[in-house]
Design a protein around this nucleic acid. Sequence first.
DNA 1: TTTGTCTATATTGGATCCAATGAATAAAAA
DNA 2: TTTTTATTCATTGGATCCAATATAGACAAA
Lengths: 241, 241
Amino acid sequence: MSKPGQQVISRLRQMILSGELESGQRLAEIPTAEQLSVSRTPVRIAFRTLEQEGLLTKLSGRGYIVRQVTQAEISGSIEVRGVLEGLAARQAAENTLSKAQSNELLQLLKQGDELFTKGTINEQDLATYHDMNQRFHQIIIEASLNPAIAEALSRNEHLPFASVSALAFDRHNLAQEYRRFNFAHMQHHAVFDAISHGQGSRAEAIMREHANATHSYAKIFSQMEENGEKMHVLNNLGTIT
Amino acid sequence: MSKPGQQVISRLRQMILSGELESGQRLAEIPTAEQLSVSRTPVRIAFRTLEQEGLLTKLSGRGYIVRQVTQAEISGSIEVRGVLEGLAARQAAENTLSKAQSNELLQLLKQGDELFTKGTINEQDLATYHDMNQRFHQIIIEASLNPAIAEALSRNEHLPFASVSALAFDRHNLAQEYRRFNFAHMQHHAVFDAISHGQGSRAEAIMREHANATHSYAKIFSQMEENGEKMHVLNNLGTIT
DNA sequence: TTTGTCTATATTGGATCCAATGAATAAAAA
DNA sequence: TTTTTATTCATTGGATCCAATATAGACAAA
């Protein structure tokens, strides 16, 4: 409403991230403009913005395509996220958590505990935990008081994670995902403990280890790649789980 | 020539980084377009691109201003650069340097040795070493074979380093800079040694320590800030020295 | 004096026209 | 048949017009 120009960008971004626009699909200004019922000008700006975000790749003279990512890129991106979030954890520990941050982290941990004491996990729980997880990491990044971290991460936000819907995938592997998520939750406890005790180096080490666990996703995607299954860019996995 | 649109972006970027456009200066589309003898369209795209790069800040309804950075942002950005280049060093060690990369690094180290065995350093040497230094780091980032690192760094490329020209500053502190650069050069030797021996963890640790040395710059800028001296965004310091 | 509202103006946002470019294709020469 | 060259056409790039918006300033009322 207030910013119609931004809406075109958001709309296209959403279409890419949701898989509505498939990876590798060609995109030209005129058809896209017509489809979105706007002129070429906002579409042009959107294309360039999304190219900078790494969601589109420019084909000189033939428009853009939705960026295709390889398993190697996913792995590399996980490593990057690991060191950056590790740094965030360290700096969060070196500063002191605000009362609000501390409380929210504690609450997230508690909610997670309740989820995992049930002993089983269903689809809905998975989605819930995913949101909680995302928030947990976000708070730590904010607590680092270092905006450069979020800035650097923004590049790797969505892009490097390609798959059919992670949740759709998880649906078939609930047992495995239960163990993974439970372990991740334990790591969250450890991260919080280190931060709240001001142990920067320990917090960083745990967070990096935590990130490494995400590599299991990269392997799954690798198998999909070999099977020739279609992948699309997905932001749900743009965080460490 | 081949890409006039990109030229407007480059031109504006250069004007910001060189200090021709001062930090905090307001920028509107029409005057800028007239000044560069182009229409508003390429200028608009350039403004948005540079905003995404972090060189401009948008003032809703009143155009843009050249981004102003604080000493805290500079420090934070150095930390980010440290962990990312640390990761690059680790991954470069885990892979194997290509013959060409290894040779070029060795040559850069040798040239540096010659520079520092003179016992003194002049302005020209300083500029030369600066270029060599930049290349040294660049090669390691490439050798990591992890494009996500360069992508994440691109955000912090220029932005966070604000000052009057670093070289202009250095001119008055040659003796101090000599010691700094000499020490940095020794660290380069150590980084290369670790990488070429496949010692990933050691390479990462040294590179992070190497980055920390850059914090001395942040302190200098901090003093300038207190003195109310004008700072401008400068990319020369966008690397670890 | 202060505060609120209204108006004028500076400034960006979008649409459309024309120019430039580059890729694909067809045709011609080797 | 293969390679080169020329031509066509799809597509982006730039300029300018008009519309929308938000800020700043003036003026009036409390």
